[in-house]
Amino acid sequence: MSAYFASLNVLKLVKNMPGGVSQGLIWGLMALGVYITFRLLDVADLTVDGSFTTGGAVTVMLILGGWPAWAALLVAVVIGMLAGFITGLLHTKLGIPAILAGILTQLSLYSINLRIMGMSANKAVSVDKYHLLLTSRNIPMAILTAALIALALIILFYWYFGTEQGSAIRATGNNPAMSRALGININSMKLLGLSLSNGVVALSGGLMSQYQGFADINMGRGAIVIGLAAVIIGEVIGNALLGKHLNFFGIMTFVVIGGVIYYLVIIIVLWLKLNSNDLKLFTAVIVAVFLAIPYLRGQRISSFSKFRKGAKKDA
């Protein structure tokens, strides 16, 4: 045991932190996309595992093809939006439940992503040869770039979801029956929301591929769960710190921060020498716990169990 603790090097942890922040910011961006579907549209959209990779693949291939990084990212966003649109069509026009529609798109994207990357599972884009927006070689700059993009996106969404159209998307997620009665085409709103969300996710994937210097067919695996983790961590912390004063701008900011916190926790866990193959399990458990907390809290207030024999009368 003492040998284990002796092997832990605090300096190494501190050294890894900035890298965790930059990656966390990129995942936090993706979480913003997840937030749009999961919280605003009330749909658990599993497309993101695929569209994250698509964003990375498109970005890397275009940069390799001589495109400037920003233009490659822009195309990645459009392709990501298209992926979300397909999920939306499967759901709204063909009546497939949203979760299943997302799974179908995600599955098909695996093949599509391989084709985008020229049938190879991995494509490298070296910062030595190409001009990239951010790279793990220069972490402070990467943090700054990712933070600025996140801020721009938060401002954009703060504006958009305050507009008539954005309000209609929120209303659709909040009360579809009312929305229809008020003349909102809820199918269009779902298409719009799913497209927007996956556009953001692809943007995040494009940034991640530049940051790590390659796109990988598996880079998006579990992205939805990481996104949910960031959303939930962000909401919990935001509520704890700001409570009633937490507005939409604040929530989105905390969602991005949630991504950072998630990633820092991962770094600590790795530092504790946990097997990195167990990370997904660890993440799933964290998300399950945080999703369960509101429910269990409600159960404590009103539940059948307090009437069970032997239960404390005035617990």
Partner: peptide, 25 residues
Amino acid sequence: APNMQLEENLALAKRRGQKRGLSWG
């Protein structure tokens, strides 16, 4: 819509059947 503000609900209703564009909600 329970998660939206009272004034947001009214604004949604005020635009019943109208085109919902990018002006402020």
